[in-house]
Amino acid sequence: MSRDDILSVENLAMRFGGIVAVNDLSFTARRGQITALIGPNGAGKTTVFNCITGFYKPSAGTIRLRNNDTEMRLEKLNDFRISKIAKVARTFQNIRLFPGMTALENLMVAQHNTLMRASGFTFLGLFGVPSYRAAEKAAIELARYWLDQIGLLARADDAAGELPYGDQRRLEIARAMCTAPALLCLDEPAAGLNARESAALSELLLKIRAEHGTSILLIEHDMSVVMEISDHIVVLDYGVKIADGSPQAIRDNPKVIAAYLGVDDDEVEAVEAELGL
């Protein structure tokens, strides 16, 4: 894998019993770019995500992550270490915030590992040492920064479960960003958003890429978002990669059009004639 790649997936396969969800998938995500993973429902996109973020152990293949000149094999790391050591953060298709905690607390939990070290693994923090207090203040400042970025500063002290759906989606992205990730994996961030909210989301993601240099891997059904912000698109269908390229190339690829829209009637007739139906 080249220096410019942050993530390289090679020959990834995931089988659940007899069902092959992902088969022999290889693709790379470039550093500092937004890579989109698209495909019809059931194509295996979320399975790929779960393999990358350690929620599934792949049946075969390798997942390499290159960060600061160190290369890590994600398929060999345990679940929480992928976020802690490899710095891969993710969001979920069905939002998984901590609903009974405030927006601010959600962002504080995301900085757990930093704060844990600062609190001397609780023992120093229990007695309120100044260095821990400073670390906590810095953590609150970082949370404040992200709340400001997603436009939720005014609702910082409200329970996350009380926020409107669109705000919850953005808060989940902010929470992932609070772990200071090298690669941010977003599972359908625009699902359920209206046109104005998806435009704001695109803007936020472009800002994250530009200002923080975080590489983004994106699963998305909303083509307006995908086409607008992606630098590179990988298309999956039935667990197999059918296309890979720039947004323009993907838009014109007949295989992709067929996968999404089905094939023309005359093609179906031609196949039927061949089979003698």
Partner: peptide, 24 residues
């Protein structure tokens, strides 16, 4: 302290805790 917040986060959603790098 972070440990207490992690306890409460664990009560709220264990999967999300792991995704945030918390050793459950």
């Amino acid at each position: 302290l972070p440990i207490g917040r992690a306890w409460e986060a664990l009560r709220e959603d264990e999967v999300a805790c792991r995704a945030l790098g918390i050793n459950t």
